[in-house]
């Protein structure tokens, strides 16, 4: 008991300290003291995080640590929850995304999102990808739209598998294909950032490998932020990693460094499997 309370004390001593060893130059996304409240309950505490462009950044941490909450701040998906309130500042390319004048819809077009469970619309594969460009007016005419759908599907590595059944329902695809369809759908709105919320947790290993491969390709053109439960995945796909714990961003650095030489005690415990 005594020992237990000691370790507790050790943990409580430094909840607000954040260890950041790498300074990101010319970041795509900067966050300053981002806090999120659900009603009276605070879910995220003063997160400061600079995310580099054209790289994959992983957010890791145990369940309920706030990593998904932070992710959903970047495209203001938290706005859809009536009781959620976000304070602090998030900038994309030096533009404050919580600026009241900013149109959240345009933001979400620029910041694509892929969800935990593949959620294609119950429409045809073509319509799934074409929906975003249509509502944003990104394609001029039918041929333009078809081209955009094709390139998006190609970039998502799905084109060869579905080109013969482009008008069949997207819900008829396998789980991994569905998730790549969702990625194609996100790409189709010509975003610069893609957020992925545990994109492989509902997929089998082979499908996971394909999605990871895709992420590494997409990195060259997009800034990618991924929430993942799998530390192996974070190591495989990401250049930067941030560790979240009970609402705090505890440690942030190059992926290699976080996994091989974590500074914070809590990061060490998590990475080396002492809690989770």
């Amino acid at each position: 008991m005594v020992k237990g309370s000691l370790t507790m004390d050790q943990q409580v001593v430094s909840p607000e300290t954040t260890t950041t060893r790498s300074v990101v130059e010319d970041p795509k996304i900067t966050s300053g003291d981002v806090s999120v409240f659900y009603g009276a309950k605070q879910a995220l505490f003063d997160v400061n995080l600079d995310i580099p462009r054209y790289a994959v950044t992983s957010l890791i941490g145990p369940s309920g640590c706030g990593k998904s909450t932070y992710l959903r701040c970047i495209n203001r998906m938290n706005d859809t929850i009536p009781i959620a309130r976000v304070t602090g500042e998030i900038k994309i390319d030096d533009q404050d995304i919580y600026d009241p004048d900013l149109d959240v819809v345009e933001l979400r077009a620029r910041v694509g999102m892929v969800f935990q469970k593949p959620n294609p619309f119950p429409k045809s594969i073509f319509e799934n990808v074409a929906y975003g460009p249509r509502i944003h007016g990104l394609a001029k005419g039918k041929t333009d739209l078809e081209e955009l759908v094709t390139t998006s599907l190609e970039r998502a590595g799905l084109w060869d598998e579905v080109k013969d059944r482009i008008n069949e329902p997207g819900t008829g695809l396998s789980g991994g294909q569905q998730q790549r369809l969702c990625i194609a759908r996100a790409i189709a709105t010509k975003p610069d950032i893609i957020l992925m919320d545990e994109p492989c947790s509902a997929l089998d290993p082979i499908a996971t490998a394909k999605v990871e491969e895709l992420m590494m390709e997409l990195r060259e053109k997009y800034t990618i932020v991924i929430v993942t439960h799998s530390m192996a995945q974070a190591q495989r796909v990401s250049q930067k990693t941030a560790f979240f714990h009970i609402g705090y961003m505890v440690e942030y650095g190059d992926t290699k460094q976080i996994f091989e030489d974590p500074q914070d005690k809590r990061t060490q415990d998590y990475i080396f499997g002492r809690f989770g």
Binding site: N75, T80, F115, K117, N119, F121, G132, I135, H136, A188
Partner: peptide, 13 residues
Amino acid sequence: SIREAALGVGASK
């Protein structure tokens, strides 16, 4: 999930 998907590609409510 359908709502989220649509919101995610930038559809308004």
